[in-house]
Amino acid sequence: MGSIGRAFVVLATAACLVGLTACGSGNDGTTLTLYNAQHQDLMRTMVDAFTKQTGIKVELRRGGDPELANQIVQEGDNSPADVFVTENSPAMTLVDRAGGFRHLDQATLDQVPDQYVPGTGNWVGFAARSTVFIHNRGKVTKDELPASIMDLAGPEWKGKVGVAAAGADFQAIVSAVLAVKGEDATATWLAGLKRNAKIYANNIAAMRAVNAGEVPAAVIYHYYWYQDQAESGEDSRNVDLHFFGHRDPGAFVSVSGAGVLAASDHPTEAQRLVNFLTSEAGQKTLVDSGALEYAVSAKVPTNPALTPLAKLDPPAIDVSTLNGPKVVELMQEADLL
């Protein structure tokens, strides 16, 4: 019987060893690990172009902005990531404040207009997207359109507006409200939203619900609508866009960031990747990808289908001040999370 017990121990140990050796961590010199909070298709296209140009392979780990940002902070020096790419800037700020980034090469910073670069110079914006109010053509008339995103907390919108509260996109929009209106006004606004809003898993689901008339309106980013229009229009046929403009927090233009991690084992290659994302070639890949996000490079023209950024009249917000954790806390207090 003792020998059978021993056999168990040997087998279990062997299984563990096999498991350990089978688990190559992926960093074998030429492969970068990219923590990707951006859309997988877009980043796949961009890094494929990068690999084609440089021969450096890139593996993507997907997740949400705050998820991956917090993950990088908790991983600290042990983080397997080399580059972090987000949809919105609060996540970049979170990592930057925790000292998670390496200063970017000057050449990279020079490629990007100043409004997309934080004061620290530790990350850059490489794409931008605008907040938009979408509504079902048959359910909301032109007269009923809200003038400000703040109006959505009013009783007339009860049960009529959809948001993807758990998503980073909406949380970035909340961070803009926080930056423009302050904490008290934001808390009041969130409490109103808690009463009014129907919660969706993400922007696509919200748009689909608006299209089907399940909810009259929603707050999302612009490109979901443009992408669907470009493809089949199946989920946006009945949906109209309404940009708030007038420097309303609802006209917020969110910046997608890219940065090189302090914990990176391949900083040179990682710097090259971020440089590529903001380069003319990279930005052109972005525009041609069908993602329909805004490019940030001045040298690359915006996709003609989109309303030019200049016409959106967004509020002036320093990209490095948006406070993600505070937003999560406020949303928890409002029971939206």
Partner: peptide, 25 residues
């Protein structure tokens, strides 16, 4: 349940995880 938009503890934990990774919440 996430697909059915019916939040329970498990889906809420996941939402919290998305918002703040491995947090006290």
């Amino acid at each position: 349940l996430q697909m059915l938009r019916f939040p329970t503890f498990t889906t809420a934990i996941y939402d919290q995880y998305l918002s703040s990774f491995n947090s006290p919440a």
